[in-house]
Design a protein around this nucleic acid. Structure first.
Lengths: 261, 261
DNA sequence: GCGAACCATATTGTGCACAATCTTGCGCAT
DNA sequence: ATGCGCAAGATTGTGCACAATATGGTTCGC
């Protein structure tokens, strides 16, 4: 009687089911109607897949037309996105896909390392049964990553690579840390798109597999070490790509890559 | 020529100045006009000072009258607050000050411990000169806390106690971690208000002083240990207060303490 | 007397119209 | 030819009016 009003859902998102902890992965910003959440998710997807690049102007009326909703709804969505540092709102000028600065990236990396180390530690120190469950799920995910690479599907590869980290966080069970990481991953995706030219090394899949092995074995130190390496790898690549261009002419010229449609 | 457009600011907020890193303390949600940010800040202040209790209904028109702005502005502010889990927006029912659940508090505590340990570690491992600067600032803050206690100003005491932690984060220099902690502290303030009856031990000031001594001495391990103790102290008190009442009759009855004006 | 449907009121949700602001392109003077 | 100013168009910002929904009390039927 006094239970929640969500009797029978689950088993609707296709492949990602059977594991309740993964339910938190779905983006559900509060205060938005289902229709708005849909559009919100599509925007985030577009960013994760690099279809929306940093600096692109998001014209309200255009978005309204694309998603088939009114301009005020778009307006609310943009406001929410701005709270998560995914969109930059300039007064009287409009909304732009965020272009993270050097300092922001450094901060984000520090936060990410902090969160993910905690996540991996949590996973690796769970009971054997639960750990087996988790590892099995993540191995399947890596399988999907491999397929995407084999098929040459660059977009899917990028998306799945980021999702791997989010799935780990979801499985660790802390909703708050998961949401923090979601924001960070999105921002990092933007930073990589903006400042990295050869983004061949977003996330090497072999490192994912090794990390998973360590978790499987319950080897805390090794898992921690591998993760730290993995992330510092990314950080070095990104921060190197950004080195010196920040707030400089190059960054300004980089803004050219706007252009709608 | 290619520098930022912030030539000479600073030195405007009265007592809290002379330290650039503390500038990040001021709440500035993006996408809100200055007028809206003002109202936003007042709402957060009211929550930090326990003048706004969890579960209280926030009627749009009332707030509009109080702050002297239009209803649509209030609407935007509430949407932003909902993104930070400070306000719960129920469709067609209205906005309510959030009442964190047991699970949310656990997650928040884990995140908080993670962030603050990193903050304290960062502070304690800074160079001697910088460390002296920081410690001096924080000691002055503790002085203010003492005064509030001596004067019997309960409201100021609560506010300053929470602010101590935020100042440490601000001085550590990571903006993103700071903002995360701001959200967590606000939520925790709500949780304490909602579920703790004798909230005499929000934060004991002597623990702040001890922690600061350890940072001053550059004693990483001791600082880390003291912080962990300090927070676990709080956690135990809160989670004990909440034990069993979650989603139960008690929680439902607790909603009675609404009443506007 | 009890319960259920109904209506009045209060509150939130949404679309629209217009105001404010920025951008762009043109023309004019130097 | 170059730079300045101005006007037209495009885009964002805001208030208002009305629709949709929830709430609480009342009345009617059993």
């Amino acid at each position: 009687m006094a239970e929640n009003a969500k009797p029978k859902r689950r088993r609707s998102a296709g492949a990602v089911v059977e594991e309740p902890a993964l339910a938190g992965l779905e983006l559900r910003p509060p205060g938005l109607t289902p229709v708005e959440q849909e559009a919100y998710r599509k925007l985030i997807d577009a960013i994760a897949a690099r279809r929306l690049l940093p600096g692109v102007k998001l014209v309200e009326e255009d978005l309204a037309g694309i998603f088939g909703v009114s301009r005020e709804r778009i307006r609310r969505i943009l406001l929410v996105l701005s709270q998560h540092d995914i969109v930059r709102l300039e007064p009287n000028r409009g909304a732009y896909v965020a272009r993270p600065t050097y300092a922001e990236c450094q901060d984000a990396f520090e936060a990410r390392l902090l969160i993910e180390r905690n996540v991996v530690r949590a996973l690796a120190s769970m009971g054997p049964a639960r750990r087996r469950m988790i590892v099995s799920h993540l191995r399947r995910h890596i399988g999907a990553e491999s397929e995407a690479i084999a098929a040459g599907d660059r977009v899917a590869e990028i998306r799945l690579s980021g999702e791997f980290h989010l799935k780990m966080a979801a499985l660790a069970g802390n909703q708050r840390l998961l949401r923090m990481l979601q924001d960070i991953v999105a921002q990092m995706s933007l930073a990589l798109a903006a400042h990295t030219h050869a983004h061949d090394l977003d996330c090497s899949i072999s490192e994912h597999a090794e990390l998973l092995d360590a978790i499987d074995a319950g080897d805390l130190d090794r898992a921690d070490h591998l993760l730290a390496h993995h992330l510092e790898h990314m950080e070095a690549a990104l921060l190197h790509g950004m080195h010196g261009e920040e707030d400089s002419l190059a960054a300004a010229l980089g803004e050219i890559r706007s252009g709608n449609a």
